[in-house]
Design a protein around this nucleic acid. Structure first.
Lengths: 369, 369
DNA sequence: TTGTAAGCGTTATCAA
DNA sequence: TTGATAACGCTTACAA
């Protein structure tokens, strides 16, 4: 493109070559109206010729804008194995790059401070705005950012969510439609394989699950509601526990597809058939979901689109639009594949009548035909 | 921590409060030796009290360092679904944060220029260094960064790799041990389900595959070497093609675990059993690999550790160490699980003698017992 | 050991 | 329509 990349030219140099002042050149390049069309063209041409590009740091210092938004990784062990996360990133990057914005990823940093990573971004003014995910019911990050006056948008709500921007899936609906689907397949003992209770998405999905059950006239059996360490191994163990109950579930609503994978393995290792003896429904619809065996029935949310939208919202908030305007809840959709099936196919309850939550009167160990 | 977060204090303000010059305060805070211990303590205490943190932009402008390294996402469609990528990021972040470095993620940007994203980072001096991945045999990014004088490190070598830092798995070895493993299980018709030829890792792994076959006295059957679009769907189709050959393979070496997932689905949909009729070996050992059905035998490389090491190397190069010192090739390890098994178990060749590459004399369609 | 002052490369204010 | 000049907040020669 330009002659010599190693010999950078700055605004002053460019102005000198053109016989103009830095001011004029700067304005010509930034599309100000008070520059003659002729001058502008001349400047633009020369800039291109000499490969001039403004120094981002200098521009940031003067303008007070960093043209950067931040994302803080959660704890370092296994949280972000989930492909949904890469999709979220890719989606954000798509729109950010278009607007010449950078996305910086940092981690929480050492030390117990869960706010550490956020403090750094805020205090050192490294970013113009922040994206949060995996919100908790009472999320201290939200309080912190609100008080610091840092623009942000969260992927997920919280119970303290007031005047901030967020994008969220309708988690309650997600839990509801998954459970409804299973009820429609005549399942009566349906388990909920969840994440820790503090997470807002877990809370809401569980609520949807409970609502569906109640509407069907069924009680909630606490034994069927589990909380995992939110990892695949955790879900494997949790699912195994469920399947070894005196009255095991014939269906499991899983908090996400990764958890569903763990559950599938658990079902198999108990000698049972997925989609027959035990139905499984996931959440997210990550790429591997369609390729699993059996292909996973799941509740889909488009994380790449979510990433794009989150970035757009944040950029708008940074630009000064009131944050509370941007509060979106997206409807998830059920993607039916093959990991669920009618309850009567299950060998767990050959008589076809699993006991209700409160009346365990038909003991029958798991894994028997 | 500090009194009023909305009312930032800068170096000048802090100096004023302390009755010192900016210089002294700056040096005290940056650990210079020519500041009296007493002054330093006083400064540090006051700084903490007032919640002073240096403005990152200003520091960057003066120092000429951005304290940021860059990573450019490949094309936007499905490349980074792979969990290995999230691991790489997490690993890099771990060490970067410790040193107060940021990681910025950008995309290639619109327009056909494959160097677009890199140009932006380099020209606008947004980063001190760059990490590349998925190198190609003749990688123009390497040439570009070399010429631009931008420090970088690549995850993967290239054929033009001279004086730059890289970390790579021993890909040839990886292809070799996977193939050896299958040969040891008496397989004779072993396919290679690869990525496009331009990729260096594909090139080397294929070489390892070929070497193992040759050492075993077997010819390479071009029909058994496929190139996919490097996505799961692509590998599904490619694997299906392989299985429908007149003389289908009894084993498939896959370019990565995601491809292996596609292959597994293909095997099943042809009515065959994974690990019996057709053995599958993956690469990477992503988290879901152990949870798949059957658990995937794969060649493991620790991408999180790789991420950490890449960051360390890059930081060293940025600090001025000669790049060519940092050229590491890591040995991969075979993780045996259940997706591979002895050739005699395959119903594809009941007589136990699959034809060699050049002499297809025993036609026997796939999927027959 | 501490302070003065000159940058770093922009953008923005105010005259001309 | 254009041009001096002053910020922006920090680091670092160079003096004291």
């Amino acid at each position: 493109m330009h002659s010599n990349p190693s010999q950078r030219i700055d605004l002053k140099g460019l102005a000198q070559v053109l016989g103009l002042s830095m001011t004029t050149v700067s304005r010509a390049l930034n599309g100000y109206s008070d520059v003659s069309e002729k001058t502008r063209r001349r400047v633009e041409k020369q800039a291109r010729l000499l490969g001039y590009t403004p120094n981002a740091q200098a521009r940031r210092l003067t303008s007070g804008m960093t043209e950067t938004i931040g994302f803080v990784l959660g704890d370092v062990s296994g949280y972000y194995d989930d492909p949904y996360f890469a999709q979220l990133l890719a989606g954000m990057s798509e729109v950010l790059t278009r607007l010449n914005y950078d996305l910086v990823i940092s981690t929480r940093g050492a030390g117990g401070d869960p706010l550490g990573g956020y403090r750094r971004l805020v205090d050192e003014r490294r970013v113009d705005g922040i994206v949060l995910d995996r919100t908790r019911r009472d999320d201290e990050r939200i309080a912190f950012l609100l008080e610091a006056g840092m623009p942000f948008v969260s992927f997920g709500r919280s119970e303290v969510s007031g005047d901030h921007a967020f994008l969220d899936a309708d988690c309650e609906e997600a839990g509801y439609i998954a459970t409804r689907r299973l009820l429609g397949l005549s399942h009566r003992r349906i388990a909920f394989l969840g994440a820790p209770r503090g997470y807002m998405f877990n809370h809401l999905r569980l609520r949807g699950y409970e609502r569906a059950l109640n509407e069907a006239g069924l009680d909630i059996d606490p034994q069927l509601v589990t909380v995992t360490a939110y990892e695949e191994e955790g879900s494997f163990h949790a699912a195994t526990g469920l399947l070894r109950l005196d009255h095991p579930p014939t269906a499991i609503v899983c908090i996400d597809d990764m958890a569903a994978m763990g559950a599938i393995v658990a079902v198999r290792s108990e000698g049972l058939e997925v989609g027959e003896d035990v139905s499984i429904i996931g959440y997210n619809d990550i790429a591997p979901a369609a390729l699993m065996d059996p292909p996973l029935t799941t509740v889909r949310i488009d994380s790449r689109a979510a990433g794009r939208r989150l970035a757009e919202m944040l950029l708008a908030v940074i630009a000064g639009r009131p944050a509370s305007v941007f509060q979106e809840v997206w409807a998830p959709t059920l993607v039916v594949r093959s990991s669920d099936g009618p309850a009567f196919a299950s060998r767990l309850y050959p008589t076809g009548t699993p006991p209700l939550a409160t009346t365990p009167d038909q003991p029958l160990p798991a894994g028997e035909a």
